[in-house]
Design a protein around this nucleic acid. Structure first.
Lengths: 224, 224
DNA sequence: TTTTATCTACTGGTTTTCAGGTATATTTTA
DNA sequence: TAAAATATACCTGAAAACCAGTAGATAAAA
């Protein structure tokens, strides 16, 4: 399926229309790696690269870009947030998520925020190029590992965000810090009985049996 | 068992003697990045690269290597372990730790296991080369960020490993899973009273006041 | 403007944890 | 081998957590 569909595209410009791609990653080594991996592929042009979310958003303000290779863990802005901003402000620009770890909840959030594909950083050059090409053609691309992760996380329905209220999150944080019901009540200027209620609701919502497990699950789900 | 490197043995005086370096990282992108970054430097020769700990240990069995660029997070063997093995079996070979995150406890363990230097993956090419050169000359090299991390972690004395026993770690894990003292006792075929003792010792050692905080701290310190 | 969600508060009860101890057999280490 | 660390076990009593149900006051959403 690779092959002679290159020239049929009814090009807007002359030559081969290359896919304008930018890289966002806070690690120089990864940036270099990506540049090297994509070096031999003429269809893809690395327009620029950035180590912060702020920088790439500024750039997009002035320059049209086809694909953003977006690392999830950035120093300034969360990758999930950047994803959202990009797709709201620049609907033409497509994002391909990249990360080291395979956290279903993050991937899910990225998808909700409009990411068009997702790869782990151990991807090969071919896989990377394939992903970029697919996404540029309006398709989605998720590596097989990612698909497995997503599939299992959907069937399990596990990382479904249990929708904690603001107050509950606050109480949860205090519980995780070792505060007792009475201490929490003092701190929040409410009755210990109320704190008990929140505590109960947290344990029920998170489907656990005590505070220790509650804390663990909460951390697992990045709620703290 | 490979033959054809025999004649290279006595080439100290030929040109500049290059530093035989191997890369261990499970991410293709990082490997490519490292190769690219080190490309222009003739003094450093990337002999080979690996994506697993097992592979590099096998290689070292047959080939002498000066420097191992060692990622901490590998799929099979823990980077900390590999470090230890390498320095025990191949004292001539020096390791330079590489990782994304700056976890003082891990860096400390690596140092204990003989690592000669440590860099974050956002290091520049110059920094990398400088580190490799320094280490090859018998010095240590730790990036300024790492030094800060180590300094603060020493003064804070915070991540001091509270030295949990095997049994205590086991109990800790079960507590984090929401098990009660009695359930744990059943599972481990010991008296609930014993479990209570372990629980109390855990809470004392970790300097917290209850199980919820215990779980949080334990996760923070990567004990679970 | 209903309806829903959230925060708040209470009663009454059971279970679990936490903090002080003590103590013995086994394993590790110096 | 002697000493230290570890794993095991027990006791008591107080504090805290947990369970189940109810319900009023707001605040947000339909």
């Amino acid at each position: 399926m690779k092959g002679p569909q290159l020239q049929c595209k009814s090009m807007r410009s002359m030559k081969k229309e290359s896919i304008r791609t930018v890289i966002v990653d806070d690690h120089q080594m990864v940036i270099e790696g990506l540049k090297t991996l994509l070096n031999g592929y003429e269809s893809i042009e690395i327009t620029s690269f950035f180590t912060t979310g702020k920088a790439v958003l500024e750039f997009l303000n002035n320059q049209p870009v086809d694909i953003v290779l977006l690392d999830v863990n950035l120093p300034d802005i969360n990758g999930v947030e950047i994803c959202k901003i990009i797709h709201e402000k620049y609907p033409e620009t497509k994002t391909l998520g990249l990360s080291t770890y395979n956290e279903p909840s993050i991937i899910n959030q990225m998808i909700k925020n409009g990411v068009k594909g997702y790869l782990l950083k151990n991807a090969t050059a071919d896989e990377l190029v394939h992903a970029i090409t697919q996404i540029h053609n309006g398709n989605f691309y998720f590596g097989s590992e990612i698909q497995n992760i997503l599939a299992s996380s959907i069937t399990d329905d596990k990382d479904a965000p249990p929708k904690l209220t603001r107050r509950e999150k606050h109480v949860l944080t205090l519980i995780a810090n070792g505060k007792t019901t009475n201490q929490i009540a003092e701190e929040l200027f409410i009755s210990p009985l109320t704190v008990e209620t929140h505590r109960r609701n947290l344990i029920r919502k998170m489907e656990v049996t005590n505070a220790a497990a509650l804390v663990k699950i909460a951390i697992d789900k990045n709620l703290i």
